[in-house]
Amino acid sequence: MGALVITVTSGKGGVGKTTTTANIAAALAAQNAKVVCIDGDIGLRNLDVVMGLENRIVYDLVHVVEGTAKLRQAMIRDKRLPHLYLIPAAQTRDKSAVSPSDMIRICDELRTECDYIIIDSPAGIERGFRNALAPSDKVLIVTNPEVSAVRDADRIIGLVESEQKGPPSLIINRIKADMVKRGDMLSIDDVLDVLAIDLIGIVPEDEQIVVGSNRGTPVALDEKSRAGQAFRNIARRLAGENLPLMDLDKQDGFLARLGKLIRPGG
């Protein structure tokens, strides 16, 4: 029935849901797929900022739900990618303005028109999360390699399973290879040991993320960014490709090369 509805969620806040949503959407749209993003975080919208579309918002999700605007009117076309659209959240309302059945209805309306619908879930396990989960075909759980984020991811996986949404996939975001090596950060295996779900991607810590978010330019469009490469890989895996996980030890920055020259074999 047309589009695949993907919900990006995490439980804990600040692990990179919105960044992940924006980047996967951009990467998919860059592969010529037609993608619609929906910001599910009503009252605390961010996705428009990260995608650099803040100043184009006229109508939002709540307008569509309440019938003040048509779905088409609320879909903002991306400024770079012609196949990428955003349905922004309302900033002046709260989660109760939308119900899970509203979300299902809107997604069903969109399904025939695009290839992917990506919903950015708010943090938490309340109404906003349930709204974002209701229409989902595929749930992506974003977590960081730290105990509290993994604990919340575990909670979310339990809720997704109890909603019979099928097995979710995991994205481990903001990994620092050197910290893992020193034993100061959970490794990928440590996280998978607890969560025991399919791993769809790992994203290294990358300063460019902050730069991209502030500028409204997803790093997935930056060929040189390591995190951008990681998000492009996730997009390709979602499209059905079978790619090996990124090698986190590979450092190709100037400083890293310098470091290797100074400490050969180090």
Binding site: R151, D152, D154, R155, I157, G158, E161, V194
Partner: peptide, 20 residues
């Protein structure tokens, strides 16, 4: 998983983990 609970007056057998 985290946040789930099992409460039963008899015995409980879990095949799987009981997460933090």
């Amino acid at each position: 998983r985290s946040g789930r609970s099992i409460n039963f007056p008899g015995h409980v057998v879990v095949i799987g983990d009981v997460n933090a």
